[in-house]
Design a protein around this nucleic acid. Sequence first.
RNA 1: GCCCCUAUCGUCUAGAGGACUAGGACUCAGGCCUUUCAAGCCUGCGACAGGGGUUCGAAUCCCCUUAGGGGCACCA
Length: 510
Amino acid sequence: MTDSTRPARVRFAPSPTGFLHLGSVRTAIFDWLFARHTGGQFILRIEDTDQKRFNPESMQNLTTGLRWLGLQWDEGPEVGGPYGPYVQSERRDIYQQYAQQLIDSGHAYRCYATAEELEQMRAEQTARGESPGYDRRYRWISDEERAQLEAEGRPSVVRFAAPLEGTTVVHDLIRGDITVENESVRDPVLMKSDGMPTYHLAVVVDDHLMEITHVLRGEEWISSAPLHKLLFDAFGWEAPVFVHLPVILDPSGKGKMSKRKTVINGLEFSPFVHDYMEQGYLPEAMFNFLTNVGWSYDAEEEIFTRDEAVARFDLADVNPSAAALPFSKLEWINGVYIRNMDPADLQARLVPYLSRDLGISEAELAADPRLAGLVPLIQERLKVLSEAAEKVDWAFKTSDEITYPDPDLLLGRKLDAAQTIAVLETGAALLADVEPFDHDALEAAFRAAADAAELKPGSFFSPFRVAITGKTVSPPLFESMVVLGRDETLARVQNAIAALRASVAEAVEE
RNA sequence: GCCCCUAUCGUCUAGAGGACUAGGACUCAGGCCUUUCAAGCCUGCGACAGGGGUUCGAAUCCCCUUAGGGGCACCA
């Protein structure tokens, strides 16, 4: 159990270098859940101190993705807050001030090593079989040497003067104590020569200034946690609680999930949130799915609402071991959410996808009575919203656009072309006369006809399915007929009869 | 190479020394239902990495081994 009585301040601190990644989102979800659980704040901070890698497009991608998932931040870009600015590149002066404070107190120093010099140093270390790391060569130079280098105008960075002896113990909320020899902290760079801070300085200064109580981040940060602890100590600040979340593994189980799409056994997996938006995953399903990786609601239930998760979430219950995302479960969960939706809601959510895939304007679709009839028919058959088009496209075509390139598909089970034509003609007569033209009347009439013809329903019905939709797999038959209406249904059946006759004639000629 | 983290079915997980013949979910296989496809229902396959301790008793605590993962930048 974590102390849930005190409101926590947690931050999600991505760097805007690419598209929003599922691994990042899982961290953001845990941040959000913990903030809500404790009645605290969820803060968004942009870590854009690497000017070379900054990608302006990714800001939009990030905020869109977070909002899609319902992870609205309480403080941060676009919404402001009392601890701003929340974009690190706008906080340059703050970091410079704190770096100077560290230099003044003897906890940091300027280093004048060039990139080439450092590269050579590492090469030599590796050649000697030593582990590569800065050898502190500028830590103990004399004041005269320092003055000389400054006078020459040599560019410099600010490095942390790490303790040379002893050990540092970082307590991680889900992993316990992590102990590291201070000697292994090799005076990392705090301020780069361009005047920007490195992650290490910026994160410590900002987490302190923004009064962050719990630092949630990926386990790839474990190795720098002792450095951060040491920095908090050097400033004389109290460190926040560290929580290193398990990394998300590649679906293949090999290594961290990559930052690009991967193909495994012919299936494509994307690590980017926007791809799931596009495919028609529901944000609430995605949220539910991701929440179950590294944390669990209880021993039995895997489907739960956001509020239920907020009520139970506790960082102390997070599982420390790395996990691959179980994508087959995502499909299942999404299907569950779709099935549980109010049909009117589903219809509204389907409109943008159908509009895109069918080439019909959203306004036109929304007003089309066929859509309302179709949605309940496909609701339990949908795994993702983007599948809808292929399931209902036939309804939006004209009878001429339904073609039968392979007329044999029209054939009922164990029926030849002549028998199938007879079936279709029987059905056509029923379709012309049945009253009312609704599901029950149609089913009754067709079942009676199948009986009379001494055919199994499946074998009698299937020619109509293909005639009407052009496909062997479709939504339920009679409901589909009702959506089309009597005239359109009849026209398609007649076209199918004609297609079969033509194919019989062709076969005779040969 | 060095440092650190982790280890339960194929995958995601439950498990806080006795409630474990190790539970759930997804996937897969079989069956039922059925106008196709789904959905639903039932059944099945399937795991405590290995070895030492501690203890009356270990999936659970300790150690070693092994395996997997992360890190060793003027990137985050």
